[in-house]
Amino acid sequence: MNIGCKPCMDSERQRLLLEISKVDFALKELNLYLDTHPYDQQGMENFRQYNALKNKLVKDYTEKYGPLVLSIVDMDSREWKWATQDWPWEGGYN
């Protein structure tokens, strides 16, 4: 049975979310690498750069579309979008 997509997000939103996922994946890999190579300066520098980039992208995403983490939320909004927006496994979201 073709269930069709949940109301799909606009492509700019998907692109930004994918970009966050890619950068966060690099961070996760560097995280594991640094756990066993804790004095690798190049690894730490790479982590620093990607971490700054991720924080910026998550902030952009949150302002435009809604929260991904509770530490960066749009408190000007009258709506608690963390709970009202779709959860990631619904498919249209990610």
Binding site: K22, V23, F25, A26, E29, L30, H37, G43, N46
Partner: peptide
């Protein structure tokens, strides 16, 4: 054996699809 270095794929798209940045 130990992973020797942290040379990364330059293209994050490739790394993301491959499943490792190394």
């Amino acid at each position: 054996p130990w992973q020797r270095n942290c040379n990364m794929y330059e293209n994050l798209d490739e790394a993301f699809k491959t499943g490792t940045i190394f």
